[in-house]
C-alpha cells in the first residue's frame, strides 16, 4: 500500500500536469491570435486530435469493436442522441462478453 504522503503528492502533481495541459494551449493561442488566418487552423485542431486517436484504435479494433463503432456513428447521424449512442455502443462491447450480462442485470439495463 503506497504511503499516504506519496499518494497526496502524486495526486497533486497529476492535477497540476493535467491543468497545465488545459491552460497552456489557450495561452499559446493568445500569443498567435493576431494572425487572422490561424483561426480556422486552431478550430480544426480538436477534430484532428479526435480522429488521430480514434483512427488507430479502429484500425486495430476487433469485429465487435467495429460493429459498436459503426452503430455509434449511425445512431449519432440519425438521432443526434449521445445517450442512446453511448448506451448502445457500450452495450455491444459488454454484450460480446457473456459474463457482462450480469452487469446489465445489475445495472438495470436489461
Amino acid at each position: 500500500m503506497p504511503d499516504n504522503t506519496d499518494v497526496l503528492l502524486v495526486i497533486g502533481a497529476m492535477a497540476l500536469v493535467v491543468y497545465l495541459t488545459r491552460v497552456s494551449g489557450y495561452l499559446l493561442g493568445l500569443q498567435v491570435r493576431h494572425i487572422g488566418s490561424l483561426r480556422p487552423v486552431l478550430e480544426t485542431l480538436p477534430g484532428c486530435a479526435l480522429v488521430a486517436i480514434l483512427a488507430p484504435a479502429a484500425w486495430r479494433g476487433s469485429v465487435v469493436e467495429l460493429v459498436a463503432l459503426a452503430s455509434v456513428i449511425a445512431l449519432m447521424w440519425f438521432t443526434d442522441s449521445v445517450v442512446l449512442a453511448s448506451v448502445v455502443g457500450v452495450g455491444i462491447l459488454l454484450g460480446a462478453d457473456p459474463l457482462s450480462g450480469l452487469f446489465f442485470a445489475w445495472a438495470g439495463f436489461s
Binding site: 477534430g47 480514434l54 459498436a68 463503432l69 447521424w77 457500450v90 459488454l94 462478453d97 450480469l102 452487469f103
Partner: peptide, 27 residues
C-alpha cells in the same frame, strides 16, 4: 458488484465516446 465486468471488453469505450463527440462536431 462491478467486479463481474470484464473491463478488457471496455477498452474500446474511450474511442466510442470520441466517436460521439466527432459526430456532434461534424454537423
Amino acid at each position: 458488484h462491478l467486479a463481474v465486468v470484464n473491463t478488457e471488453s471496455l477498452r474500446f469505450a474511450g474511442p466510442l465516446v470520441m466517436a460521439t463527440m466527432l459526430m456532434l462536431f461534424a454537423r
